[in-house]
């Protein structure tokens, strides 16, 4: 059986990747929306996004919308692949337990 991805498996990082993977590959989520969806605090979310970015699973784009800074997080192709494998492994664990 394939191993679970340790980077994705952490609960908040799993939520971040699940949210980003529900979007079209070219779409991302801005920081406040991601914070609202995951229920995380600013510092916690920032730290976990950084971990995912270091692994190459997400890209972080900072831009100014008017005078306001906006951070947009998007799942990379590598991140989408890793997430798909992680989900497949979760399903495999359930199937094995059910004796399929």
């Amino acid at each position: 059986m394939a191993e679970l991805d340790d980077i994705i498996h952490q609960p908040l990082r799993l939520k971040i990747m699940a949210a980003l993977n529900a979007l079209h590959p070219t779409q991302g989520l801005d920081f406040p929306r991601l914070k609202k969806l995951t229920g995380a605090t600013d510092g916690n979310l920032g730290a976990h996004i950084e971990t995912l970015a270091k692994a190459g699973y997400v890209s972080v784009e900072k831009a100014f919308v008017g005078k306001k800074p906006q951070t947009t997080v998007t799942a990379t192709a590598a991140g989408r692949g890793a997430f798909a494998r992680h989900v497949a492994t979760l399903r495999e664990i359930i199937a094995t337990a059910e004796g399929k």
Binding site: A18, L37, T96
Partner: peptide, 21 residues
């Protein structure tokens, strides 16, 4: 490695987040 209940909970969390997004 996690057990099947934990795997099932993780999948439910993923599905719930996907629906919300």
């Amino acid at each position: 490695m996690i057990n099947s209940q934990e795997a099932s909970a993780a999948l439910m969390e993923i599905e719930s987040l996907s629906r919300l997004v």
